[in-house]
Structure formats: structure tokens, C-alpha cells
Design a protein around this nucleic acid. Structure first.
Length: 355
DNA sequence: AACTCGGGGGG
DNA sequence: CCCCCAGAGTT
């Protein structure tokens, strides 16, 4: 253990830390909730979600008793929806199989779905004072720079190497504070671009600063190409002002969320190519006549980290009643992707103006 | 080991 | 346009 490193870090932390709601408690439920929300998510983006969840579900029993629909609806907009599904599953699991109490150590915490090395270490250290080092994106950056490590952080070798180093540096007296300190230091001071190295508390010993490698660390392997997909959403409107929605049940993005009936095409569809599409015909052949208009002329580009969705909404008026249709006004009760949510708010605004 | 899974914010 | 964010699960 390097006590000097930890002492410097914690000293900085105590003077510079943000006041955040999950920092005023060691309740494992609250800490776990915050850690799941903050995975791959900035504090500013996750904070309102934490407030919503802790208010709606003050205890793990409340969360476990909720329907999945409610959990997903509260999670709407935050992304990586498997986190919400696993959050809910783990809540039920802890209530039923752990008598409502979280495991109190790193090893057993790892058995919970949605809890990996980082989250298990965070909970164990913050709630139970176990000397388990967290390694998140901030820790990779701070350690790669200070120690001049060029091993790719997104490689198995890199993960092991940084975990071992972080574990070596942790303060066994205050593991929770140490872990939060190094993350806060990365988030607030040793930032990805243009960190203020000349005033840094570690600039007397930082390898990257000494060797002018700050901008190139941490090193990361490049990822694969982004795929393009072409989505056509069919927005049915019946004579009794209802529409169709479907739930995404297959594997892939947005599992368990709702959307309008989707026709995915190989290329950007036109009204002509769409009306010849087999999937389109299956979805519409039950109607005697369809009055279809293209809502957006240029496709709406929705960017995910690994795919670009070129999306067209098609408004389809039906001169009859829809079986299993839902009132358009109730569509906001369902958890939907941001892409759908944006469309709905724009579309309903447009219709209100018209009326 | 490589791939998949969202959405937003900053330079 | 790019990168990154209090990562984890699946293949």
C-alpha cells in the first residue's frame, strides 16, 4: 500500500468533493441503486433518475414489489435498459433469497445480476469497509497517467493490470473514501481533455506529465464500425383515434420497451418501396384501405454508440376501428425509446396546434 | 477476446 | 466530428 498516494488523494477529495445524495448514506440499497444508475452515465445525467427511484421506491421491498413496466418507465431515457431489468430482478432476488438484506462482501455481491467487479467493489468498500478497489473509467485515466501505463484499458490484460494496481494503492483504513476520492479526482480534475496539470497535486510524480503523454493516456483499442439501419415506424390512426403499439421482445436494443409497429428495410424506403415490402404488407393487409403519408421527409438520425438508425415515421389513417388499439392519449404511459418519445411529443404538439 | 447494449454532453 | 461517461452480460 502506498499511504502517501491515498493520503494526498483523500485530502484533495475532502476539500473538493461534490455533495451528492448517495454520499450521505451507507445504506447498501441506496448505494447499490446509485451505482447501477451511474454505470456508463455521468453524474449530471443520473442524478434526477436517482431522485425519482429513491422517492418512488424508498426501500428494496418497494422496488421488488413494483411491476416491471413501472421500473422501465422510470428508467426511460437513461439507456442501457438491461440495467433496469437486472436492477428489478436483483431487488426481487434480495428480498426473497436474502431476507431483504444485501450480501455484505465483495465476493457474494458479485453473484447479483447487474453487479460486476466495479459495483461489487463500490458497495463492499462504501457500505462494509472492505478493501476492494474500484476501477472505472476515471480510475483507468488517473492511474494510466500517474504511473505512465500504456496497456490498453479495454483489454483483458489492461483490466487485470489496473485492478491489481488499484488494489495495491487502496487505503485499507478508509477504502470507501479512497475509492470515491480517486473517482472524483478523475471526474473533476484529471479530466479526459486539457487537465490543469500545472496545479495538480500529483504533478511532482506524474509520469504522463513528466513525459508529455497526458493527452495520449489512457490508451484504448479502437472499436468496430458503426452499422446503419433503416427503421420505418407505422403510426396507425383509426377513425376512433386509436393507434397500435408493440413491445420489443427479441434480443437487441430496447428490450421490453414499446414502439409503433416497425418495418426495418435494407435501405432508405420510399413510399413506393415500403408499400411493396413484405413486412409492411403483413402489417397492413387486414385493412380495406390505407391512407399513408410520410411524416418526415428526411430520415431522423438516431445515434447509438454502435449503430445509426435512419428513421421514417409513416402516418397511416384507417377508415375503420383498430382491434387491440390504444388511445393515442395513453401512449405516454408506456416505456418507449427516446426516438419514439421525441416523435410523440412533436406529433402531439403539432396536432394540438392544429385543433 | 470480441461484441452488444443508450443517450447525452463537451471540445 | 470525435470521445467519454462511477460497466456488465453474452457469445
Amino acid at each position: 500500500m502506498d499511504t502517501e498516494f491515498s493520503k494526498r488523494l483523500i485530502s484533495w477529495y475532502l476539500q473538493n468533493k461534490r455533495e451528492l445524495p448517495w454520499r450521505t448514506t451507507t445504506n447498501p440499497y441506496a448505494v447499490w441503486l446509485s451505482e447501477i444508475i451511474l454505470q456508463q452515465t455521468r453524474v449530471a445525467q443520473g442524478l434526477p433518475y436517482y431522485q425519482k427511484f429513491i422517492t418512488t421506491f424508498p426501500s428494496i421491498h418497494d422496488l421488488a414489489a413494483a411491476p416491471q413496466e413501472q421500473v422501465l418507465k422510470l428508467w426511460q431515457g437513461l439507456g442501457y435498459y438491461s440495467r433496469a431489468r437486472n436492477l428489478h430482478e436483483t431487488a426481487k432476488n434480495v428480498v426473497v433469497n436474502y431476507n431483504g438484506k444485501f450480501p455484505d462482501n465483495y465476493k457474494e455481491l458479485l453473484n447479483l445480476k447487474g453487479v460486476g467487479d466495479y459495483t461489487a467493489s463500490a458497495i463492499a468498500s462504501i457500505c462494509y469497509n472492505e478493501a476492494a478497489a474500484v476501477v472505472d473509467g476515471n480510475v483507468y485515466r488517473v492511474l494510466s497517467r500517474i504511473f505512465g501505463i500504456e496497456t490498453p484499458i479495454n483489454s483483458t490484460k489492461g483490466q487485470k493490470e489496473f485492478k491489481a494496481l488499484a488494489q495495491q494503492l487502496i487505503n485499507p483504513q478508509k477504502p470507501g473514501t479512497h475509492n470515491q476520492a480517486i473517482m472524483e479526482f478523475g471526474a473533476r480534475y484529471c479530466v479526459p481533455q486539457n487537465p490543469d496539470c500545472s496545479n495538480c497535486i500529483f504533478n511532482d510524480s506524474c509520469e504522463a506529465f513528466g513525459k508529455r503523454k497526458v493527452a495520449s493516456l489512457p490508451f484504448k483499442l479502437k472499436k468496430g464500425a458503426i452499422k446503419k439501419r433503416y427503421f420505418n415506424y407505422l403510426v396507425f390512426i383509426s377513425e376512433d383515434n386509436k393507434t397500435h403499439i408493440e413491445q420489443r421482445t427479441k434480443k437487441g436494443i430496447w428490450q421490453q420497451l414499446y414502439q409503433f409497429p416497425l418495418v426495418e428495410t435494407k435501405n432508405q424506403a420510399t413510399i413506393k418501396t415500403l408499400m411493396e415490402d413484405n413486412d409492411f404488407l403483413k402489417l397492413t393487409n387486414q385493412f380495406s384501405e390505407v391512407d399513408i403519408t410520410q411524416y418526415n421527409n428526411a430520415p431522423i438520425l438516431h445515434k447509438l454508440s454502435h449503430q445509426h438508425l435512419y428513421t421514417t415515421f409513416w402516418i397511416i389513417f384507417i377508415s375503420e376501428k383498430l382491434q387491440n388499439g390504444i388511445a393515442i392519449s395513453t401512449i405516454d404511459d408506456y416505456a418507449v425509446p427516446v426516438l419514439i418519445s421525441n416523435f410523440i411529443s412533436e406529433f402531439t404538439t403539432f396536432n394540438n396546434l392544429k385543433n
